[in-house]
Design a protein around this nucleic acid. Structure first.
Length: 571
RNA sequence: GCGCCCGUAGCUCAGUCGGAUAGAGCAUCAGCCUUCUAAGCUGAGGGUCGUUGGUUCGAUUCCAACCGGGCGCACCA
């Protein structure tokens, strides 16, 4: 297309200096061909000619027109509709075969280093549903960025310093003393969940004897570190059963204890980014577009959360990442300007930090809302959801919507084994194809590789439609990855699965086993005529369709894998 | 009050860089299993893209105002 434009320009037929974005979309209606472009209309203004004329000029300058296209036409205002030759589409299957699990991969990232930080919950309790969504989104974004050529590290930031941990320690301590019939006052904003008592019981069992007679301060301290370890392990196990592994775990306490936080503040101060006022130290974030300055060290000498966050992001930048992606709960969106201010204070453009916001999950059961009260410690944990619906279903549901919009998650629906359930719908498409291989093997039908198959027989609109969809996979992956929007992929997979199911229902892939069975079932020699009417299926066509199926299966597998979801062989 | 996000079919939502007759799933209704997995398929009805202006050959998409909803505006995390 560009070639055609340049050709026309050289001949003086077009005069515009800079081309507008030359886009080729896949049109909405089949009669508009396989590819459509609106360049002619975009050029109309600068060329001061009718779009139709410009389109004609482009067509005249198309190279290889005969080899590539069956039909080239101009429609109404100036749409350019192209119908690609089947042979070009058939090549897509060979490409998928050749690239296999790598089909769709790209080198957009050029090995830029990206740190994706997600979940990062306080180790003060089990992960809840919202963390689950963040986990699914973070993992999918990380995976997809890897697939398009970024060097990605995924990291969990452990908020194991500060007030919340103190409260945790105090809560466990209070329960521990209660267990020993030495009631102490429960901290005002302590954690009430039953898991706290469970931890206190383990404290008693495991280190109770050595705590006996020790001063209260020390016991509380031990309770805190014990609980920290316990809950962190719990979180790790929950994530593991959700199929999520982090390459790196980063402790906030390590920053505080090593003095890194103070060093970073000193450094900022020497660069005039910090100032003292009313006994507190402030970060001059308003100099970088934040609406006001922010406290980093309180009057009482304690650091704020922001202080360690500055140190943490400073550390990330020093580790040499070109891009930092933070996955946050959407209620933290007000934090974005100040963190981007931090990045700028360190001399980087603010978009070096990208924040992916994850909105609330609304849990439903059979259409009715599941009430949760975090205050009373009654919330549905991520583990409960995984145990009930399975990791695959949970992930798929978490990824079905734009992460920045609220999500209704119906537990009953996620468990359903029917086409109403999008997870099974997609996985079933993959399993159905797997089943074809099993049947083919059992019947001794050869399944040659696409490269050894005559694909030219794939000319049916349903066949070509599937291939067209397959050919869109790379751009879906790339778009989904670079926009940090995994829901585009789940949407695509549902569409592809839909096409597959329709195809499967409408067409045969393997020849009917019935030939033999029917003869046996018809002792009077009358062969049923039902079967062959549907579609004549030559061995050649069977082979070609199997090749097509193999492509569909590969793409389904690649897409599911990118989302961290399994592609079952059997369901 | 200020800032960010959102408003698309009865419900939940897609809709990329402004393109043609705005899509999917659910729900509703009517059908399809002697066949490679019915965990599936086919068909029908359903719309003032919140409202009003603006930019444009063309706006669900961009801009402004307004209406309605969510969230955030700590020396909390």
């Amino acid at each position: 297309m560009i070639g055609a434009l340049n050709g026309a320009k050289q001949k003086g037929q077009l005069k515009t200096e800079a081309w507008p974005l030359v886009s080729l979309d896949s049109p909405k209606r089949p009669e508009w061909g396989d590819l459509a472009s609106t360049v002619a209309m975009s050029l109309a203004a600068s060329e001061q000619r009718a779009p139709h004329d410009i389109a004609q000029i482009i067509i005249d300058n198309l190279t290889q027109r005969e080899q590539l296209f069956d039909r080239v036409e101009i429609v109404r205002p100036g749409f350019l509709n192209l119908t690609v030759k089947p042979a070009i589409w058939q090549e897509v299957l060979r490409e998928i075969e050749a690239e296999g699990a790598g089909y769709g991969r790209a080198d957009l990232g050029k090995h830029q280093r990206v740190l994706v930080e997600y979940v990062s919950a306080n180790p003060t309790g089990p992960l809840h549903v919202g963390h689950g969504r963040g986990a699914a989104v973070g993992q999918a974004v990380a995976n997809m960025l890897k697939a398009v050529g970024y060097d990605v590290v995924s990291e969990y930031y452990i908020n194991d310093a500060g007030r919340q941990m103190k409260l945790l320690g105090a809560s466990v301590y209070a329960r521990y003393e209660q267990l020993s019939n030495r009631p102490v006052e429960f901290p005002a904003e302590g954690y009430h969940g039953s898991y706290i008592t469970a931890v206190a019981e383990r404290v008693k069992q495991q280190i109770g004897p050595e705590l006996a007679g020790r001063p209260a301060v020390e016991v509380e301290e031990r309770c805190r570190t014990f609980a920290n370890q316990e809950l962190l392990n719990l979180i790790r196990e929950d994530l593991k059963s959700f199929g999520i592994e982090f390459e790196s775990w980063f402790s906030e306490a390590s920053l505080v204890n090593s003095g890194a936080v103070q060093r970073v503040l000193d450094e900022l101060q020497s660069q005039q980014f910090l100032f003292e006022q009313e006994g507190a130290w402030w970060f001059r974030s308003s100099a970088f577009g934040d609406e006001k300055d922010r406290v980093v060290r309180k009057q009482d000498g304690e650091y704020t959360y922001l202080a360690s966050d500055i140190a943490y992001h400073r550390d990330k930048l020093q580790r040499g990442f070109d891009l930092l992606i933070d996955v946050w709960g959407a209620d933290h969106h007000g934090y974005i300007p100040r963190m981007q201010a931090v990045v700028q204070a360190y001399g980087h453009p603010k978009d070096r930090l990208q924040v992916v916001l994850v909105q609330m999950v609304n849990l439903l059961r059979g259409g009715k809302k599941v009430e949760m009260s975090k205050r009373a410690g009654e919330f549905i944990t991520m583990r409960e959801v995984i145990d009930e619906v399975g990791a695959d279903a949970a992930k798929f549901f978490f990824l079905m919507r734009d992460s920045d919009s609220h999500l209704d998650f119906d537990l009953e629906l996620a468990k359903q084994r029917s086409s109403d359930n999008p997870v099974y719908y997609v996985q079933y498409a993959h399993a159905r194809i797997a089943s074809l291989w099993r049947v083919a093997t059992a019947r001794g039908i050869a399944c040659p590789l696409p490269s050894q198959t005559n694909l030219a027989v794939l000319t049916d609109q349903d066949e070509l439609g599937l291939i067209r969809k397959l050919s869109a996979y790379p751009s879906v992956l790339q778009g989904s990855a670079t926009a940090y929007e995994p829901h585009r992929m789940t949407y695509y997979l549902q569409q592809l699965a839909g096409l597959l199911h329709t195809f499967y229902n409408k067409h045969r892939i393997l020849p009917p086993a019935a030939d033999r069975d029917l003869l046996m079932a018809a002792p009077d020699g009358v062969v049923s005529t039902d079967e062959p009417q549907k579609e004549a299926l030559s061995p050649e066509r069977t082979a070609a369709r199997l090749a097509l199926m193999s492509g569909v299966q590969q793409v389904l597998r690649n897409g599911l894998k990118a989302l961290g979801i399994s592609a079952p062989e059997q369901m």
